[in-house]
């Protein structure tokens, strides 16, 4: 019996990674849910928007690194982030003017907009591959660890190490700040209030003199910010590879739907639900149980419920359970 080591192992392998991953998913799902609430369609290009934002940031990061600019212990990517957001915002507003606005004017059915977003997805995907290629890009610099496993072991004298990566700490701090700012914006500012009014009841909002084009433009800018930050944080934490961003689409949509499409609070809750279940179900609990079990009862097998390759199955399973038993999601989204 060694509960302290068990807790440390659990923190190290499950809780910290899942919190960081959950924050990344939550930021992605917030973007999806905002577009759904205000533009009223599921944006399949969101994963590739994240990839584009991360790519812009990486390119600027390389430029800064070339100039010798850096933030010391923090990754240079933070300095490049505003430029990445600006680039992505320009692309999204341009896409809206060139593509989506036409269908909005026509009052096209949501499913047509979804198909249109498929076309946009192809183009963005092609664009990212065209500019930066399909390979892994590592752009993390600065200090790698806040606490490394070794320092922790020396500090506490425990057998189990606890590693806390800079990228994980950064993800959690940034996500909290972004979410706080977003909620402040939506609840306190005039533009934010008009966005919520537009999302709740479009006709009433139009009657009260809200300019729909302005609301839409602000939405795209906010979505660009959310998507770029989510993409960069994910890229710093794991690594940047265009194809993995496309695959993030499923957990992100699962998060948004589990929380309730159109509900920002739901998107955050959904992100953490999906992340924690994905990592818990695919983690091999042998070590943790080994510390907890009384002597001689340690498990022989890995005690892994599903192999990590099936992590999609986890988000999918949760999605199905929620859809079957609570179709509007945990936080009462708009959808039926």
């Amino acid at each position: 019996m060694d509960p302290i080591n068990a807790i440390v192992a659990l923190l190290n392998f499950v809780i910290i990674p899942a919190t960081a991953y959950g924050a990344q998913l939550a930021l992605g799902a917030l973007g999806v849910t905002l577009i759904y609430g205000i533009l009223r369609f599921s944006n399949f290009a969101h994963g590739d928007t994240m990839a584009f934002g991360a790519m812009c940031t990486i390119l600027v990061t390389w430029l800064f690194q070339g100039w010798g600019l850096s933030l010391g212990v923090l990754p240079t990517a933070l300095l490049a982030l505003p430029f990445g957001i600006a680039g992505t915002a320009l692309l999204l507003i341009g896409t809206d003017r060139a593509v989506y606005r036409f269908y909005r004017k026509q009052k096209a059915a949501p499913v047509i907009l979804v198909i249109v977003s498929m076309g946009v997805m192809f183009i963005m995907n092609g664009l990212v591959r065209f500019i930066i290629g399909v390979d892994d890009q590592n752009f993390l610099d600065g200090e790698r660890f806040i606490i490394s496993a070794r320092t922790f072991r020396e500090m506490t004298g425990l057998q189990e190490g606890l590693a806390f990566k800079t990228s994980q700490g950064l993800t959690i701090v940034t996500a909290v700040m972004v979410v706080a700012a977003l909620f402040w914006f939506l609840n306190r500012t005039r533009t934010g209030k008009s966005m919520r009014a537009f999302s709740d009841n479009e006709d009433l909002a139009l009657l009260s003199g809200i300019n729909p084009e302005k609301v839409v433009t602000y939405t795209w800018i906010i979505v660009a910010g959310l998507a770029t930050i989510a993409g960069v944080l994910y890229g710093l934490d794991k690594s940047f590879k265009p194809f993995t961003y496309f695959q993030l689409l499923l957990p992100i949509f699962a998060s948004a739907i589990v929380g309730g499409l159109g509900s920002p609070l739901g998107a955050i809750a959904g992100g953490f639900v999906i992340a924690f279940s994905e990592i818990t179900v695919t983690y091999a609990f042998k070590k943790v149980l080994g510390y907890l079990a009384p002597g001689g009862w340690e498990p022989d097998s890995l005690v892994q419920l599903l192999s990590t390759d099936y992590k999609f199955a986890v988000s999918f399973g949760i999605l199905i359970i929620v859809l079957l038993f609570k179709p509007t999601g945990l936080f009462k989204g708009k959808s039926v």
Binding site: P110, A313, L323, S335
Partner: peptide
């Protein structure tokens, strides 16, 4: 059996998921 009868977007996500699985 599970996803039909819900919104069209949900069928889309469900099929996307089953394909990956």
């Amino acid at each position: 059996k599970t996803a039909l009868g819900l919104r069209s977007d949900y069928l889309a996500i469900a099929t996307l998921g089953i394909a990956e699985i």
